[in-house]
């Protein structure tokens, strides 16, 4: 096969680029430690969330020093609890599911961004530093009122933080 030298140069550059991209992502996954959402959250009966130990009461609870778990339900067209209140300087693992259709879970303007699928539990761990407030929105079309589906995540100073559901 008759390949021009310039084309060989470009072929090598292109492969280099591809390997470079994969290496960068691997660096992010290992050295920086950015975890992907996976099947760790398990499954759930979407029509019986009120009987499920994790989701019968949507809430934030403390599970260790500066470690919290948030159980969140995304449904047409609200998030529960709302607001989701977490303490500053903490690591929060969100468990999110849906009783109806597929939703999105995006803490606005941040990297906390996930899909929520009925029957599945999305598990996502996020580090919160400064106190403040973030918007929360559904970014997957979920019905006629999709554009009204919003909530908020309030990061409270650690000494003000009170634990429990906010419903």
């Amino acid at each position: 096969m008759n390949i021009h030298n310039y084309e060989k140069i470009w072929l090598m550059a292109a492969i280099l680029l591809i390997v470079g991209f994969i290496s960068t992502v691997t660096y992010g996954a290992t050295a920086v430690g950015v975890d992907m959402i996976s099947d760790d959250g398990g499954t759930v009966n979407a029509s019986a969330l009120d009987e499920d130990p994790r989701f019968s009461e949507p809430r934030v609870e403390q599970v260790g020093e500066n470690e919290y778990e948030a159980y969140v339900i995304a449904q047409q067209f609200i998030f529960r609890p709302d607001p989701i209140t977490v303490p500053a300087n903490s690591t929060v693992t969100f468990f999110v599911t849906s009783p109806d259709v597929i939703h999105g879970f995006e803490i606005v303007g941040t990297n906390a961004n996930a899909m929520v699928v009925p029957g599945q539990v999305t598990e996502l761990t996020v580090e919160f530093n400064e106190p403040g407030e973030y918007g929360l929105l559904c970014h997957e079309y979920c019905g006629a009122g999709h554009h009204t589906m919003e909530g908020s995540v309030v990061v409270q100073p650690q000494d003000e933080f009170t634990q429990g559901g906010d419903e």
Partner: peptide
């Protein structure tokens, strides 16, 4: 990049603004 979602009729929300 500022977090504005796709597939949304009114990407203007009550509780927050995009920065």
């Amino acid at each position: 990049l500022f977090g504005v979602p796709r597939r949304t009729a009114e990407p203007q929300y009550q509780g927050f603004d995009f920065v």
